[in-house]
């Protein structure tokens, strides 16, 4: 589903975001990407969304080498990837319903289908009764649910979550993680970048640790805290 082959990203100011990294993520996988701030986690996410171009190497998503995509083809790549962010990024002037429907309008979906699918997805994320509320009337957890609903409304094969629980209290964070797991169970490939040690430890999924732009460690069913041990082993 996602293949990174020898990807290097050097920014214009000389900072190295990614150093000769090769990483494969299969269809239907659930992957945590962990690492300290500035480790290259966000470069990884931005490369997948083609927000930044790799300096060298190939990035293949769903069989397409995205480094070869033209600018006008980028929107069609992004329709295959649902994204959520730490800060939710909802439109404050739109209601919950409109925020989700917006993602469908943008890709010119038939209004009938919008009217059918949006309530379904809102019910799934547990916000069926808050369709007409505005984001500022919602709690952080609820806002992230709206963001998740928006990310998956167009049924993308991949869900990218950048620190999705970073702004939430532990209990709410778990609720969000459970929701993401449910999305995963429906067949979506999930990639989450996070700092949340307890969540990573507890979920026992594949954990990719990035440090200084390289994959330091890649363990199936691992935990966040394994990082320290492995660092000792490696050096």
């Amino acid at each position: 589903m996602i293949k990174m082959e020898n990807v290097t990203k050097v920014y214009e100011n000389g900072a190295v975001g990614m150093r000769d990294t090769t990483l494969h993520i299969n269809k239907g996988e659930f992957v945590f990407v962990v690492g300290s701030s500035g480790s290259g986690k966000s470069t990884f996410m931005r490369l997948l969304l083609k927000e930044v171009e790799p300096t060298s190497g190939k990035i293949i998503i769903n069989g397409t080498d995205i480094t070869k995509l033209k600018r006008r083809q980028i929107p069609y790549l992004r329709r295959k990837i649902g994204v959520v962010f730490q800060d939710f990024r909802l439109l404050p002037s739109k209601t919950v319903y409109e925020n989700v429907a917006f993602a469908m309008q943008v890709i010119e979906t038939n209004p009938k289908i919008i009217r059918r699918n949006v309530p379904q997805i809102l019910a799934m994320v547990g916000l069926g009764k808050k369709a007409n509320a505005y984001p500022n009337q919602l709690s952080g957890g609820e806002q992230q649910r709206v963001a998740l609903a928006r990310a998956i409304i167009n049924r993308p094969p991949i869900l990218l979550a950048d620190e999705p629980t970073g702004n939430l209290d532990p209990e709410t964070a778990w609720e969000i993680m459970e929701l993401i797991q449910e999305i995963h169970r429906n067949g979506t490939t999930v990639v989450i970048s996070t700092h949340a040690k307890d969540i990573v430890d507890k979920m026992q999924k594949r954990v990719v640790t990035i440090n200084k732009g390289s994959v330091l460690r890649d363990i199936e069913g691992g935990g966040y805290s394994d990082e320290a041990k492995n660092v000792e082993i490696l050096y």
Binding site: R72, P75, R89, L91, F102, A103, V106, I107, R150
Partner: peptide, 16 residues
């Protein structure tokens, strides 16, 4: 600009 940003993330074309 937030609205534009979000539109880009959900796959809106530039002309849209």
């Amino acid at each position: 600009k937030n609205e534009i940003n979000i539109m880009k993330y959900v796959g809106a074309t530039d002309w849209f």
